[in-house]
Simulated assay, not measured.
Amino acid sequence: MTIAQPSRPVAARRRSTRKQRRLMLIGAAGAVLSLAAGLVLFAMRDTIVFFYGPTEITQKGIAPGTRMRLGGLVEKGSVERGPGQRVAFSITDTTTTIRVNYEGLLPDLFREGQGVVTEGVFEGAGRFRADSVLAKHDETYMPREVADTLKKQGHWQPGAAGPSPVPATR
């Protein structure tokens, strides 16, 4: 009696089974990673926002002591400078206003009517204690080269673009 040698297709089946197991393992690992990423993003859904406006803070009922970023416009006539580097001002989104207390140097672009983003702790009752203040550049800023190009193409509308273009530094 002779023992039959294993045929080639059986060996090929074993190799494909190994490949299938490897692909199933990779697929399962990918599914677990996707699920983990989804859970992390779901848990961070409120903290992913770059900053909250005053109205959003009052509508969400954020608890005092919460660390966050507050953004909006510096209300005209609200800046009060105290002793040392203490400054108090109000941030508004034209609907709601929150009073901000800050101690430190303010950015050069900080002024009344200008957009700012502050980072600090919400103290409740419309008060915010800021650790840092970032002044936002005017949204209508346009380098002179871009404005000149638009003028040459006939697309320049001085009234629609806001203030005149600021020269770009080189």
Results as ranks from 00 to 15, higher is better:
97 T>F: 03
16 S>W: 14
61 G>T: 07
141 Y>M: 09
98 I>R: 01
156 W>E: 01
69 R>C: 06
83 P>R: 12
10 V>G: 11
66 T>Y: 12
114 Q>S: 14
73 L>P: 00
83 P>T: 14
8 R>L: 02
162 G>I: 04
70 L>S: 02
111 R>F: 11
54 P>V: 10
3 I>Q: 08
46 D>P: 00
35 L>T: 09
31 A>H: 06
104 G>S: 03
121 V>E: 12
71 G>H: 03
135 A>C: 05
24 M>L: 08
152 K>R: 12
163 P>I: 12
100 V>D: 00
146 V>W: 14
90 S>Q: 05
95 T>M: 06
114 Q>C: 07
121 V>S: 07
106 L>P: 00
28 A>I: 06
90 S>C: 05
7 S>E: 10
131 D>T: 08
140 T>P: 02
83 P>F: 13
84 G>C: 06
56 E>I: 05
58 T>H: 01
116 V>A: 12
10 V>A: 11
130 A>R: 00
129 R>P: 00
116 V>Q: 03
63 A>I: 06
82 G>P: 04
151 K>W: 02
145 E>L: 12
120 G>E: 00
89 F>H: 00
105 L>H: 09
164 S>Y: 03
76 K>M: 01
153 Q>V: 01
23 L>G: 03
9 P>E: 15
140 T>N: 15
77 G>N: 06
157 Q>W: 07
87 V>E: 09
135 A>Q: 04
126 G>Y: 00
146 V>A: 15
25 L>R: 11
85 Q>L: 15
154 G>N: 07
69 R>K: 15
92 T>K: 10
91 I>A: 05
52 Y>E: 01
126 G>F: 02
73 L>G: 02
23 L>R: 13
131 D>N: 12
120 G>S: 04
20 Q>H: 06
96 T>L: 08
51 F>W: 12
101 N>H: 08
17 T>A: 13
106 L>G: 02
102 Y>L: 04
10 V>L: 15
85 Q>H: 15
66 T>E: 15
12 A>V: 13
11 A>F: 15
34 S>Y: 07
118 T>M: 09
4 A>R: 03
12 A>C: 12
57 I>H: 03
82 G>I: 13
13 R>M: 15
10 V>Q: 13
111 R>T: 04
163 P>D: 14
